[in-house]
Write a protein that binds this DNA or RNA. Structure first.
Length: 857
DNA sequence: GGTTAGGATTCG
């Protein structure tokens, strides 16, 4: 049975998610003009002011039912303003009148009608009864809203006056549940300091208020005939309200964790960093001699509930540490996933209230925390990376005193030749047949130092998540590069090994996949086993199969001109330019080796090339332009709304943003173009995440203008658009209004550039390929916006994945450490052209209409 | 209830 009273409402998902979505920039007062006026109208008109007191008193009298339990006030039950109630067997003996509706914190705002509403919360603080200057008795209590525990603001001050204050002071205790009806609402003058709700509630008999008190459950109530039961047993502290030296209960979303590891003391240790909707962080250091008593966290984003965690200050920050009786529950953090607690102790409480909190936290996390991408698979590994791998243990072996070998698989095949750690067969634990069958799918992971002890304890067949494996590209003696997997010593970045239970959803998915692979793979194995039986080393097989693929198929293909036949390089070198050729060659070398150096900006008008400016120079230009004050006469024009505010930092900078309207209306942020004056780089970047287009500007006497063209004239998403200084002749910003007036302004960069008189520069990869085919060698330039690498040059600067893809592509076209014979073939289309100046004549070559084959990366 | 660790990669 779930003991609960009074009724707690379920959160409404639609509202919840809308609430959880934050505005990246809080509207400063000026911004809310229109909205505020509308709000004002609603307040004065539709919603009306407070209703006449008489009527409200009536409703409260009706609300005040008979008090069955309170001998102190049984004379005039109907008019009883303060009632002590209790619940019997989970149900209230007295119900609130049906016309009263619960109001949550969020709707306790000026301008709303609270006549038939009540607010309910748990007493978290009760001040002593005092007398005010005019002799009126006064009591202040603080109620916490159980429906909004994970909101940043979840408590409110209640001010009680007169006899009601005296009555309440006698009864109310911390932990009681209190219902306040017939209250007055006013701005809280202390909200800024106490961090509570912006309004407080006032209650008094004169105002016709009523207060119902449900006492906190008493533990030694066995002598009472009726069992007293109140829903909340635990109070959870938001992370921004933690105090040194306290022991608290809390909820949090895992932002970082180290899976339990053997400490240098007697216990296992796990370090967990949490965040919650207060946006505060808390790093907890948890110890326990029993692995199972530590939180069962499997991934960042999991949600935990900690009970009895001790809060201490360490290095100026709050820190959580295990205290006596610490216990934890861990939950999957994904919206919609089953809410199944992973408990660190056998007995724990988990009821509807907890369920609701988990759901709220999930929604908050989904829209407020960055979501990690899909989990890494062996098929997706690249050299020089750290990644987490979910896998199954197939074999293990002690290598030496400080390292231990784990042979694991995840059903996918690593695209590179992988390192095989030499160990004697007799030292290798695991099913010999299985190890042989899966030898092309397993990888060797060498774990070091502190991880050895845990690795030893693993069982063959265990499902593991190995955190922060390092892939290292290395050349073995055979002059062949391969990839190595290391789990280095230490616990930085959560490096470690966790055993996942078979009930884990990721494990279930992996198991299904492994079974399907196993079936098809073992069938293949049978058919090729006779061919392979002569081989003495698995390495050779791996390597040869790779080389075969490289050698058979060209790794680049033509996108046109397939009817051309190949020309030898020697022939091309001996011919006059200009001409076009199809060639088949190997990439012996390329420049620049540092791929980021290949990215340039190109002007198609004057054909100039320039480096992409770095963030520092943009920051400098922004700083410089911030010296020009925004001209108020240019604010709030016919086609944009302007907003100015002062930053909270030391410099107190003024930032002005002009939001361009469309059809007299502001569009959704994701469709909106805005112009910013006085912002710093971080602010500009932040705005680009939320709004479609950001244009940094500064004021002149009669219009806004673009900044120096060394700065981007436009930012869209992750892309900064630059203009050519030579070819652009900037036009007035007001020309943008013509786009704003279009039926569906799409804010295309090219269109924006055109109306602003900007000749846009294009991002391009420029590389020099040294190609060989056995008859000769020639240098050919690659000039590629997107086609060759199938990577938009404009996006690579801010996209790690694309950078890695490009590096992988080059590693594939020109594998480091590989002999010429082992290089793959490239099919390319090249053209020769003449470059003459006064003294010299040279022939150059350029690759075109060629692309990397889609199936080789 | 004392100790451990107190986030912040890469030797092998």
């Amino acid at each position: 049975m779930t003991p609960r009273f009074p009724r707690l409402r379920l959160c409404r998902p639609a509202e919840g998610s809308a609430r959880a979505r934050p505005a990246p920039w809080r509207s400063p007062p000026e911004a809310g003009g229109r909205r505020r006026r509308a709000h004002e109208r609603a307040r004065l008109g539709m919603r009306g002011g407070p209703r006449p007191r008489k009527r409200r008193r009536k409703s409260v009298e009706a609300a005040a039912g008979p008090c069955v339990l309170c001998p102190r006030r049984e004379t005039d039950k109907a008019a009883m303003p303060v009632q002590l109630l209790r619940t019997v067997k989970g149900e209230s003996e007295t119900s609130l009148p049906s016309h009263l509706q619960q109001e949550d914190l969020e709707h306790l705002q000026e301008g709303f009608d609270h006549t038939n509403k009540y607010f309910q919360g748990i007493v978290v603080l009760s001040h002593p009864l005092v007398k005010l200057g005019d002799g009126t008795d006064f009591l202040k209590i603080v109620l916490q809203d159980l429906d909004n525990l994970c909101s940043r603001i979840n408590s409110i001050n209640i001010l009680i006056y007169g006899k009601m204050a005296v009555d309440c002071a006698k009864i109310i205790q911390s932990g009681d549940t209190v219902v306040v009806a017939g209250f007055k609402l006013a701005k809280s003058p202390t909200a800024a300091e106490d961090g509570r709700h912006c309004c407080h509630l006032e209650a008094s008999e004169e105002d016709g208020s009523a207060i119902y008190i449900y006492p906190k459950q008493k533990k030694n109530a066995a002598s009472e005939t009726a069992s007293v039961s109140v829903a909340p047993k635990y109070v959870y502290t938001p992370l921004n309200h933690l105090k040194d030296g306290t022991i608290v209960n809390l909820y949090g979303i895992v932002k970082f964790f180290k899976p339990p590891y053997v400490s240098k003391g007697t216990d296992y240790c796990s370090v967990v960093t949490l965040v919650d909707p207060s946006n505060e962080k808390l790093t907890c250091t948890l110890f326990n001699g029993n692995l199972d008593s530590l939180p069962k966290i499997y991934k960042v984003g999991d949600i935990v509930r900690f009970h009895r965690i001790k809060i201490r200050e360490y290095n100026g920050q709050m820190q959580g540490i295990t205290s006596v009786g610490f216990s934890s529950l861990t939950f999957d953090g994904n919206v919609g996933a089953p809410v199944v607690p992973r408990a660190s102790s056998k007995a724990y409480t988990f009821m509807d209230e907890e369920l609701k909190i988990i759901e709220q936290l999930r929604v908050w996390a989904a829209s407020n925390l960055s979501i990690s991408g899909p989990a890494a698979k062996l098929s997706g590994v690249q050299p020089m990376l750290f990644f987490d791998l979910t896998c199954q243990l197939v074999g293990k072996a002690q290598v030496d005193g400080s390292s231990f070998l784990l042979k694991v698989w995840d059903g996918t095949k690593c695209p590179y030749p992988t390192w095989k750690v030499p160990v004697e067969a007799k030292d290798l634990e695991g099913d010999k047949v299985l190890l042989q069958q899966l030898r092309n799918l397993t990888v060797d992971i060498l774990v070091y130092d502190n991880h050895v002890q845990l690795a030893k304890s693993l069982k063959i067949g265990n499902f593991l998540r190995i955190y922060s494996i390092h892939t290292k590209q290395a050349s073995a003696a055979a002059d062949v590069s391969h990839i190595e997997f290391h789990l280095h010593g230490g616990t930085c970045y959560g490096r470690g090994i966790g055993v996942l239970p078979e009930s884990n959803p990721d494990v279930k998915e992996l198991k299904d996949f492994l079974e399907s692979v196993h079936l098809s793979d073992s069938q293949n194995m049978e058919s090729v086993s006779s061919v392979e039986s002569d081989s003495t080393s698995n390495d050779t097989i791996d390597l040869e199969s790779h080389l075969q693929i490289y050698q058979q198929l060209p790794v680049t293909v033509l996108t046109d001109h397939q009817h051309f036949s190949n020309t030898e390089l020697k022939t091309i070198l001996n011919s006059t330019a200009p001409q076009q050729y199809r060639i088949r060659a190997k990439l012996k070398n390329y420049k620049p080796q540092e791929l980021y150096q290949s990215l340039k900006l190109h002007c198609s008008n004057c054909n100039s090339l320039q480096e992409v400016p770095d963030g520092d120079s943009f920051e400098f230009i922004l700083q410089d332009s911030a010296l020009t004050a925004s001209n108020p006469e240019l604010h709030n024009t016919s086609w944009y709304d302007s907003v100015t505010w002062t930053t909270q930092d030391q410099n107190q900078r003024k930032i002005t943003i002009h939001f361009v309207r469309h059809d007299e209306m502001l569009q959704h942020p994701e469709d909106t173009l805005l112009m910013i004056e006085g912002g710093k780089l971080k602010e500009v970047r932040k705005l680009t995440k939320r709004f479609k287009c950001v244009i940094p500007v500064r004021s002149t006497e009669d219009d806004l203008e673009l900044l120096d063209l060394s700065a981007p004239f436009l930012l869209q998403g992750n892309i900064s658009y630059y203009g050519c200084k030579q070819c652009s002749s900037p036009k007035p910003i007001k020309n943008l209004s013509s786009i704003a007036a279009e039926q569906q302004p799409s804010w295309e960069p090219s269109e924006i550039a055109q109306v602003l008189g900007i000749k846009p520069l294009q991002y391009v990869f420029i590389m020099k390929f040294t190609l060989v085919d056995g008859t000769g060698a020639l240098n050919a330039y690659l000039f590629d916006y997107e086609k060759f690498f199938q990577i938009p040059a404009s996006e690579i600067l801010t996209n790690n994945f694309l950078q890695q893809k490009m590096q992988m592509t080059m590693n594939m076209l020109c594998p480091p450490g590989r002999k010429l014979d082992d290089l793959p073939w490239l099919d390319c289309f090249i053209k020769s052209y003449n470059v003459r100046d006064t003294t010299e004549h040279k022939v150059y070559y350029q690759i075109f209409d060629t692309t990397v084959a889609g199936d080789v990366i």
